[in-house]
Amino acid sequence: MLESAEASAKMRADKLSAWFGDKQALRSISLPLVERKVTAVIGPSGCGKSTFIRCLNRMHEVVAGARTAGDVLLDGKSVYGADVDPVRVRRRVGMVFQKPNPFPTMSVRDNVLAGLRLSGITPPDPDAFVEEVLGQAALWDEVKDALDRPGGALSGGQQQRLCIARCLALEPEVVLMDEPCSSLDPVATAKIEELIHDLRERYTIVVVTHSMQQAARVSDYTAFFYLGELVEYDLADVIFTKPSDPRTEDYITGRFG
């Protein structure tokens, strides 16, 4: 076990299992997520990697018939405790989805402010706040003249960075990204990867990806999932150079997946 990783974990899954109805999607996953590092979760389709991160901010339970067992700890405290409000968990653990999903009826500006507005908060200086957050998401320069246009009118890559900005506006501690580049072209993908790299300074990041190259480029730690189980977890360098499990090796060398 990577003891250092355990020591500096911001979040930790502890024997986490998840089901959709009768179908088990995750089998007793234990995994640390190191503070202000990027952890990539890789694996073939249907291996449970998206389910895994959706369990981290309690989005899994939004789906009808979904349930979990085991635990997820955030700063050492369970997010599944009886007295824990999932809404508060999601405020601290933000999420970016596979397909960019800006609110189509809101302007770019309103999309950035959406998280706060949805919690009934207006920042003291909205314009400065919007600029700051869009700056963090490396989107300000591109949209500063289009703040009143609808969010859906941006390009795909810009929409995805808008979704990242929308998530960052809440100043989360952890940012979960579910295949954030899978619907984007290579140029937009490069921009997002660069952004992930920069965001590591401030946020603990978990990226689900089906692209091993992307995992190798952006992550510090990498976890390989297969059929709902965690096969291997290690420093990214180690996983991609000398994996210890033959299944991991088969996957990263492209023999299946």
């Binding site: 999601r90 601290r92 800006p102 009826t105 998280g115 949805l118």
Partner: peptide, 29 residues
């Protein structure tokens, strides 16, 4: 209204009723 928008709002820490009123209702308005 696509569930992806509901999830976006919920993942932003919006409560269910705010999601319904400010995202679902507004999108379907």
């Amino acid at each position: 209204v696509p569930d992806s928008l509901r999830e976006a709002a919920l993942a932003l820490g919006a409560s269910r009723w705010r999601t319904a009123l400010f995202v679902v209702l507004r999108t379907a308005a």
